[in-house]
Each structure stands twice: as C-alpha cells, then as structure tokens.
Nucleic acid binder design. Structure first.
Length: 441
RNA sequence: GGCGCGUUCGUCUAGUGGUUAGGACACAGCCCUCUCAAGGCUGGUACACGGGUUCGACUCCCGUACGCGCUGCCA
C-alpha cells in the first residue's frame, strides 16, 4: 500500500480568498478526495500579526462556500497541529537548531541564511516533468534568508518545515513556486528528509493576460458569494480552468469530478478567467434548482438589494419568483428582472416608452384594458385568450399589443411570460398600471 | 540581465506523426415563440514564427519571438 495521500492548502491571511487560491485549494481537495487522503488547511500567518481572526474568516468562508471541507486545520484540529504558523515557532526554532548544528546556517546583517550546497537539483514535477536547475552560481541563485533580524520567519523555511512535519505527500501549488522548489528541496535534504511530490499548477490570468490581482473585480471568491452565484457552478467552472475531463463534458457533478480527477489531466499553460463562461455555467445550475431552493436564494438576493419582498404575502412572492425561474443566469439579475412585482413606483424604460407609448397604440392599450377588465377568472389562460381576441378585433398582430401591455405593467419590454406576470400581479394592479401608463401619452 | 515555465479559434479546451483540426463560452443569422431566456439549426475565426527529422508534422528536435513566473529580510 502506498503512503497516505496528504495535501494542504496554505494561504496567508490577506483578508480575502483569491480566486486563484481557491482553485489551488480545489485541486488539492479533489486530489485528496480522489485518493481517499487528507486535505489539510494551514494558515501561513508568520508575517502579519494583526486582524488575523478577521482575515482568516474570509478564507474559511470562501472555502466553506465552495464546499472544500478540510480534514485537519483550524476549527477541526488534527494530530499535526497547531495549524497556524504563528503558533508553531518552537518547532521552527528546533529545526533551525538542527540546521545550525549541521553548519548550514550563517548570519548576514542580523538575518539568518541557509547556505546552498550549490549543485544541480532535479525537480520532478507531476505537471511539468523533470526540470534541471543549476544552482551552482551564487550570483544568479543567492542563498535564501530564513529568518529576519527581528526574529520573524521567512515563508520558504516555515513552509518547508510544516510540510515535513505535517507529513504532506504532495504539494499542489501555483506555478509561481516552480522556481522556488529547488531551494526548498535543498533545505529538505539538508534536514535529511525526503521531499514531497510536487505538482505546480499554471496560474489564472486576467483577460488582458496579466496576473489576476486583488484589485480586479471577480478576483475574490467573496465577489461571487455577494453576487449570488451558485457555489457548485463556481466550483465546476474553476475545475475547468487548467484541468480537463478530456472528453467534451463541461457541466460535471462534483462526485464525478472527484472520481476522474487526475493530475495527468492538468494543463501546462496558464488560463484566462472567462466571466462569460462562468455566467453561462451558473445559469445551467440555476435552471435545475428546485423551486424551493430557487425561491430561497431569490428572496435572499432581493432582500439584500432592498427589494421589499417582505411587504408582500409569501404566496405572492413565490408566484412572482416562479415566473423568473429559468430566465436568469445569476441571482443578481433578479432585482432588475422582477422588481416590478414589488413596487408600483417603477420607471418606464425610456427607449421602450418612446417606441410603444404612441398615439397609435393608445387605443389599443385601452382596448386591452377593457378586455382584461372583463376577464372573470384572472389567470394566464384567460388572459391569453382575452389578449388574442383583442388583437384579432383590432385587426393587428398579436405582438403589437403585447409590448405596450408589458411595458405598462412592468416598465420594461423584457421579462417573464406576460400572461403569467399579469396573473401574479392581479386584476386590480394590472388595470391600475395600465391606467397609469395611459395617462402618460 | 540571469534562470525557469509556457504558446491550438477572442476565451476555456480536445488532439500525441496521416483528422474536413473536435467541443464549449462569446458573437452572427435562422427556427421556435407573448418579450427575454431556454432549446434546435447554421456560420465565421485557431495550430506564434523559422529551421530541421520524416514519405508525411499541430503533434518530435533546435532556434527566434512573445507571454508569464522566480531572481526579497512578500507569500
């Protein structure tokens, strides 16, 4: 039996979870789940002492939202804890001593540095293959600092120590660490230990080819949470960035991805984040939500956008939202799409009004009003019949009355099925809205 | 500058010596249709460049260009 697969995600608490970091975490998680191994979360907070709890909360929230549960780490504990580097200083001291005793460390202006053996190091990377680094030249490959004069630890040192101590078997991390890897291996060998396996995955870039930075909208997982994206959709999309099932499937169940996930299918080139595709994929997931789930998420979104859903009867809200299901890709489209249900004080889209609220249409809209006022049972089927009859009587195409009617009732020419929306609104409101529109032109 | 990684439609990708270079998003058109979506159909756009190797290169090798990363007492 091969040794247990143990992987880790080791973010530093910067106050948010980067989308690229989330994908790194996701790949680690998938790898662990596929192999029945352990996914460890370790917080690398050696450099920043302040507001850690707050900053770490963003990481926890993002990972939890994506469903990336960790087997060891903050909150859940584990036999290799603590899982905050700020609480592991004794350990680092011990390893430092070991290196010092073996003569690998020297002081340089108060800082401690590791003396490179200056040899070739072959990095056998699971994504990129064998890479030969020649570290013989000190000019081009200076010794790395492992501790600052103030006693704080440098990433390269503590990261390596923790991976060793936590018995990490595979290091899946961003490709930006590829060039650091030979130095890490030197350190590990100096400690008489065996390096883990490495798989350095390509970075995620912006549309303009630059590295996604915190400033870019959409670079933070938080952004997708707030905008009402579905975690399963974001997760699915992230899987597709740099990994491929190698067939033409795009929308994949997470269990299926776990089943077929393989490092061999991770690409070698960096990927550009495509908001369009995520938007589409989110729609695919949104369309197959249960009515109840759709309702819950929709209401939450509307509330946070200050749409007054709570002023209306639950039955009304449910009926209203039901007419929106399947029509939107992301929930943040909802306020604009269905806001007319929850206020009588909406604006008419100016361009549409200019086009449809015309002298020619006025008698037509009047006819619609009269016709609807006579409908006994105010439901979609009756409404359809009434409107069709009206159009026929006027001798005009059906579409000619649909647009003005919709505009009068909702303020827009785009929206849910007209009949159904009228039914939800109810006779009183519909007639009042038509009257209001009629008075405008 | 040095070192490293990378390069297939605008984007994500499939492809491992012989394919009309496939799919998806986006885009355009058509169909469906009460609008918009969804769905169906159709269309256009890609192997960075130059040398090899080979009967034959997107596929293998070399070089060039370009991009990215590392080159910190950031992670």
């Amino acid at each position: 039996m091969s040794p247990e697969v143990r992987v880790r995600f080791a973010p530093s608490p910067t106050g948010y979870l980067h989308i690229g970091g989330a994908r790194t975490a996701l790949f680690n998680w998938l790898f662990a789940r596929h192999h029945g191994g352990k996914f460890v979360l370790r917080i690398e907070d050696t450099d920043m002492k302040r507001n850690t709890e707050e900053a770490m909360a963003a990481i926890y929230e993002g990972l939890e939202w994506l469903g990336l549960n960790w087997d060891e780490g903050p909150h859940v504990g584990g036999e290799f804890g603590p899982y905050l580097q700020s609480e592991r200083t004794e350990l680092y001291e011990r390893y430092l001593k070991k290196l010092q005793d073996a003569g690998h460390i020297y002081e340089d202006q108060g800082a401690l540095r590791f003396r490179s053996p200056r040899e070739h190091v072959i990095v056998d990377d699971l994504v990129h293959g064998k890479i030969d680094f020649d570290l013989s030249n000190e000019e081009t490959h200076p010794d790395m600092t492992i501790r600052r004069p103030d006693g704080s630890w440098i990433f390269h040192f503590v990261n390596v120590i923790d991976d060793l101590e936590m018995k990490i078997s595979h290091v899946l991390r961003g490709e930006d660490h590829l060039s650091n890897t030979p130095k890490h291996i030197e350190l590990i060998r100096a400690l008489g230990a065996t390096p883990p396996q490495y798989a350095q995955i390509p970075l995620i870039l912006n549309r303009d080819g630059t590295k996604m930075s915190k400033r870019d909208a959409g670079a933070r997982v938080e952004y997708y949470i707030r905008r009402g994206f579905l975690p399963a959709a974001v997760r699915n999309y992230l899987c597709l960035l740099g990994w491929s099932p190698k067939d033409d499937r795009e929308k994949l169940d997470i269990d299926e991805i776990i089943r077929i996930f393989d490092l061999k299918n991770i690409g070698r080139s960096s990927a550009t984040f495509d908001p369009n595709k995520l938007h589409w994929l989110n729609g695919e997931y949104a369309r197959e939500l249960s009515d109840e789930k759709f309702y819950e998420l929709a209401v939450a979104t509307l509330r946070s956008s200050s749409v007054k859903v709570d002023d209306y009867a639950d039955e009304y809200v449910r009926a209203a939202l039901q007419t929106c299901k399947g029509k939107i890709n992301t929930f943040d489209e909802l306020p604009a799409y269905c806001g007319f249900y929850f206020t009588d004080d909406f604006e008419y889209d100016a361009q549409s009004a200019a086009k449809h609220f015309t002298p020619e249409n006025k008698p037509r809209l009047k006819a619609v009003r009269d016709s609807l006022s006579l409908v006994e049972k105010f439901d979609a089927a009756e409404m359809e019949a009434a409107l069709k009859t009206t159009a026929a009587k006027l001798g005009i195409k059906f579409g000619a009355i649909v647009h003005p009617t919709r505009l009068a009732a909702t303020g827009s020419t785009v929206g849910p099925s007209l009949y159904h929306l009228l039914e939800v609104l109810g006779k009183e409101k519909v007639l009042a809205r038509i009257d209001r529109a009629l008075a405008l032109f």
